[in-house]
Write a protein that binds this DNA or RNA. Sequence first.
DNA 1: CGGGAAATGTTACTCTATAACGTTTAAGCG
DNA 2: CGCTTAAACGTTATAGAGTAACATTTCCCG
Lengths: 160, 160
Amino acid sequence: MAVAFQTHDHARCTDSAMTNARAICAARGLRLTPARARVLEILLEAHRALGAYDILERLNAEGKPAQPPTAYRALDFLVSNGLAHKIEGQNAFIACTHPDRDHDAAFLICRACHTVAEAPRAAASGSLGQAARSLGFKIERTVIEAEGLCPRCQGTTPPC
Amino acid sequence: MAVAFQTHDHARCTDSAMTNARAICAARGLRLTPARARVLEILLEAHRALGAYDILERLNAEGKPAQPPTAYRALDFLVSNGLAHKIEGQNAFIACTHPDRDHDAAFLICRACHTVAEAPRAAASGSLGQAARSLGFKIERTVIEAEGLCPRCQGTTPPC
DNA sequence: CGGGAAATGTTACTCTATAACGTTTAAGCG
DNA sequence: CGCTTAAACGTTATAGAGTAACATTTCCCG
Ligand SMILES: [Zn+2]
Ligand SMILES: [Zn+2]
Ligand SMILES: [Zn+2]
Ligand SMILES: [Zn+2]
């Protein structure tokens, strides 16, 4: 975990993540189309959060002129299937580092180098500070938001 | 705490919050100007997160034509001084329910009625789930983001 | 092969947020 | 009190993020 904070063989890191993503999609009957795969690659290469328009720029730089919906559709797919996450505090997206299952996650985001480490959700269920401390990460600001149903709305509202 | 989930005398609730805000600003030498006070009132009355443009609409409805910077400046002031918070997951703002000090906070947001309860940061340092359970809130999705300095960037980067 | 659903392309638009600059207001001081 | 100066505000324009709507293509499945 938190490989992002260590120097590592990043080409390998990206490759194995792509292979893993393909396997996951195959297993679940999901279509990792070229457009979606390319966006995931872009996210994996960056190893940090990218805005939808950053991704668009990269796509356009490759000769394929793309409009916003192209990027957002791919991102929606990746996020809904747990292959990427949205960093709400930055309106940006990042590839998931352990996409075994649909999951919420907790993030440690460096404001200096912009590296993002994803902590398994369990670490944050307990104390986020603990996870940070064990990584040597110094927290300056947190965004903690839980969405769901309040006591009054339970039972009176459809589950989705 | 979490008064938002209970029916309560909301006029009183709003009044006392405004009085409190005035006292805090006086004590800290901050200027709670009419524009800022009005935005805070609007937030308090709503008792839920409002977008900057929702606030603008209300301001304009009162005969004072206002442009975006007017709302954003007031919101920036309120947020930097701990009198309001930004809900990143919704690009929206909410009045703080216990603005004794500058603080991060954790939020429980009902997706049905949009009520927002602010849990003291301490509750989330431990387990957010625990705080939610004790309120009867059913969590469906969480946004947990910590910003700060990663091990590599500490010492090499100015503190602000 | 054909029918239908999923995915894409394309255009236009909405919502969110800030830059930049000039004017007003008001706190602080001799 | 009148002066200085910084903070606050008004205004215009523009940047950045996200979506609606509809036509077209792709591809799965029978
Ligand atoms: Zn890597
Ligand atoms: Zn993940
Ligand atoms: Zn608060
Ligand atoms: Zn509710």
